[in-house]
């Protein structure tokens, strides 16, 4: 569930799968011993990771470190070979349950992946309409509210091809939010954008983080990680090398490899 939006109480309408009351100790995402192979190449070498409800986790690391693979395993866009992934206490596995688990996990892609034949509004309304079974009027109303939230109220009836990259990515964020997911995954959400559009997307993400949305963000945006993250995770060669709060992570990291990476990316 998303936290309420002050001006729009409709946003707090109950979602289909209300979570059972859980103890504070139980993480929203729980990953244990996750291994993933591409042929003989081991992309993930035993990842353990917990994400608490309301937490913003930013995953950084060199390309090929497995960070995208990791978050794609959370909603099983990528099959994993060993270990387990639990979202809100439910195991993420192939089978009849999968669509229901996926509906609780929003995903924002590097290349937006909007549906090009549908308007911005229809893109956002599709999930509530088909998965949550909302009547079309309600689904459209929810979509309109979310487009307002990402600053695109006046673009609702445009096709994705008529929008800028930054606008498309904001529609994609609204589309993910429309399912009222328990967690939002971002897979390098600004990497395909022209530089002048990065800011508008990061602003939306920052406001989501402030309103308490649980987020796991794979990104190269160090400024965003520093400002917004509750925890920064550094991955390299399929392993979590280091994780810490941004204050500690960016000022006095423990690991030599973290220091080397930060030096390389922060130098310019």
């Amino acid at each position: 569930m998303l936290p309420p939006v002050e001006s729009q109480p409709a946003m707090t309408a109950p979602s289909v799968a209300e979570p059972a009351p859980k103890t504070a100790a139980e993480p929203l995402i729980r990953i244990r011993g996750l291994h993933k192979f591409y042929g003989t190449f081991e992309a993930l070498k035993g990842i353990d990771l917990d994400v608490r409800s309301g937490e913003v986790v930013v995953v950084i690391g060199p390309s090929g470190s497995g960070k995208s693979t990791l978050i794609r395993c959370i909603n099983l866009l990528e099959d994993y070979d060993r270990g387990e992934v639990l979202v809100d206490g439910k195991r993420v596995l192939r089978g009849a349950q999968l669509a229901a688990v996926r509906a609780e996990v929003g995903m924002v892609f590097q290349s937006f992946n909007l549906f090009p034949h549908l308007t911005a509004l229809a893109n956002v309304a599709l999930g509530p309409l088909r998965v949550r079974g909302l009547p079309r009027r309600e689904a459209n109303a929810r979509a309109q509210t979310l487009l307002e939230r990402v600053g695109l109220a006046d673009q609702a009836y445009k096709l994705p091809g008529q929008l800028s990259g930054g606008q498309q990515q904001r529609v994609a964020i609204a589309r993910a939010l429309a399912m009222e997911p328990k967690v939002l995954l971002f897979d390098e959400p600004t990497s395909a954008l022209d530089p002048e559009m990065v800011g508008e997307v990061l602003d939306v993400m920052q406001s989501l983080a402030r309103s308490g949305v649980t987020m796991v963000v794979v990104s190269h945006e160090m400024g965003f990680a520093r400002r917004v993250a509750d925890r920064v995770i550094f991955m390299e060669a399929g392993r979590v090398v280091e994780q810490a709060s941004p204050e500690i992570f960016f000022t006095k990291p423990n690991e030599e490899r973290t220091r080397a990476f930060l030096q390389a990316v922060l130098q310019h």
Binding site: N75, L77, A99, A100, R102, A103, V105, G106, M107, F109, S111, N113, L114, F115, L126, G127, R130, V131, R175, A176, A178, M179
Partner: peptide, 20 residues
């Protein structure tokens, strides 16, 4: 990416095909 986006919002096979 279109298949993945449809899967990620939890659309079933039938809806993915018909709508996307």
């Amino acid at each position: 990416g279109q298949f993945e986006a449809a899967e990620a919002i939890g659309l079933g096979f039938f809806s993915s095909m018909r709508d996307v």
